[in-house]
């Protein structure tokens, strides 16, 4: 039986983490969280999370950076904004989740084989490239990066959709594009320079 310490020493915390999250999310109200738990009770997926939204807010304030950024919670948030509307301290919790997702991706510590971050990245890439999303393109990229067997599993659904004219064979290879892609690409470049 291996015994290890389960409580962090204060020196192991990232004291500035809370400030960085507040800056990134444009939400300085995190510091006003009163730990009432309204967010967790209105969240439709909190019962599947490793840390509930209430707990996560406390962890951000206290500087539990690694735990927060590696949590499943951020990838389970479905952006329904119920917590954001209900929060008595007016914390934009959904936007805080987005900030944590971005920090996890930038730090390279998001779960690489999990479909949720793969889907977000695939969709962002396709839109930055073509200006138009492709539902099929996103599903294919996501599956190839995480679990290619997923495509087989989805085949019956695909057939049912094709039969009803809601999907076409050309969706597999054709990608919709906007006309003025140069403008979009210049926009991306300009923003990168600013950052």
């Amino acid at each position: 039986m291996e015994i290890s310490r389960t409580v962090k020493y204060e020196s192991e915390l990232d004291k500035d983490f809370g400030n960085r999250v507040m800056e990134l999310s444009g939400c300085h109200k995190i510091s006003e969280c009163i730990q009432c738990g309204t967010c967790s009770s209105t969240c439709p997926v909190s019962l599947y999370m490793d840390y509930t939204p209430r707990k996560l807010m406390a962890m951000i304030k206290a500087g539990f950076k690694d735990e927060a950024l590696r949590s499943q919670t951020i990838w389970l948030c479905s952006s329904c904004y119920s917590c954001t509307v209900m929060c008595p301290a007016q914390i934009k919790i959904t936007d805080v989740m987005y900030s944590l997702k971005r920090m996890a991706i930038e730090g390279g510590i998001y779960p690489k084989k999990a479909p949720a971050p793969a889907l977000a990245k695939a969709m962002a890439d396709i839109i930055a490239r073509n200006g138009r999303n492709s539902e099929m393109g996103v599903v294919m990229e996501m599956s190839l990066k995480t679990n290619p067997m997923n495509l087989l599993k989805m085949a019956p659904m695909g057939l049912a959709l094709i039969k009803r004219g809601r999907m076409e064979i050309k969706d597999f290879y054709h990608r919709d594009k906007i006309k003025n892609r140069r403008q979009l690409h210049d926009l991306v470049k300009g923003l990168k320079k600013e950052a």
């Binding site: 900030s99 997702k101 971005r102 990245k121 969709m123 839109i127 138009r132 999303n133 979009l184 950052a195």
Partner: peptide, 19 residues
Amino acid sequence: NCCGATAYFGVDKAMAMAV
């Protein structure tokens, strides 16, 4: 162009707003 939906905000906030 496409709006990026919720996905884009989790990857790049400035781009999400810009598209």
